[in-house]
Amino acid sequence: MNKTHSDARSALAGLVKDGMTIMAGGFGLCGIPEALIEAIREAGAKDLTFISNNAGVDGVGLGRLLETRQIRKMISSYVGENKLFAQQYLSGELELEFNPQGTLAERIRAGGAGIPAFFTKTGVGTLIAEGKEVREFDGEKYVMERGLFADISLVHAYKGDTEGNLVYRKTARNFNPMMASAAKITIAEVEHLVQAGEIDPDQIHTPGIFVQRIVHVPNPMKRIEQRTTRKRETAPAGEEI
């Protein structure tokens, strides 16, 4: 089976429908599947539920789908960097479900691993636990959270092979591995596409069984949200920089 597609649009062909639930990897703008998000915009599907830690920023990432009002609901942990998001949320156009970041990550991991629910101590005694089962284990209280499983997952990886095996780079890994496992169809965009066998099997982060379609997106434009640097100083003699 050939998993590779020539471009993001063809990688999504026939998959995207109104009302679907879609996961999108990334933390802030780091490791987001930007080309695939753009292809969702072109596909034009509406009333989408997006599961993603953040909602991009104005004009970038999922912010692009807010512009076209394709998103009806977001399941996220933090959405602070997006004015359009706030506008649509306050006007009631956009539904929002906040999950603690670790709970969100674990819900996705669990969904992908066939675990329908789990107990966590995160959020016990807070708004997050309202309406959810709370149980005591070994004298401590835990709240039940459900696994998440989507129709489609969009992930970004540094390197992939024709089998769909993926390798992520640095902190661009974030939510991508769990999301790759937690959907009926996972589409991966990769910066480098190689033949099966070229990646050392010991170094593979996401096994290809989780990835149904793969598209080569060389040299993606990667944006930095908070550019922080330090000045290069001349080190005093005898000291390391």
Binding site: G28, L29, T103, A105, K170, Q226
Partner: peptide, 28 residues
């Protein structure tokens, strides 16, 4: 600066000889 290397505040950072990377599920 490396766009693939940021902290929880989305600031650009660097790695050390002791650094390891993992998924957000492993992190939490």
């Amino acid at each position: 600066e490396d766009p693939d290397l940021i902290n929880a505040g989305k600031q650009t950072i660097t790695e050390l000889s002791t650094t390891s990377y993992f998924s957000s599920a492993d992190s939490f």
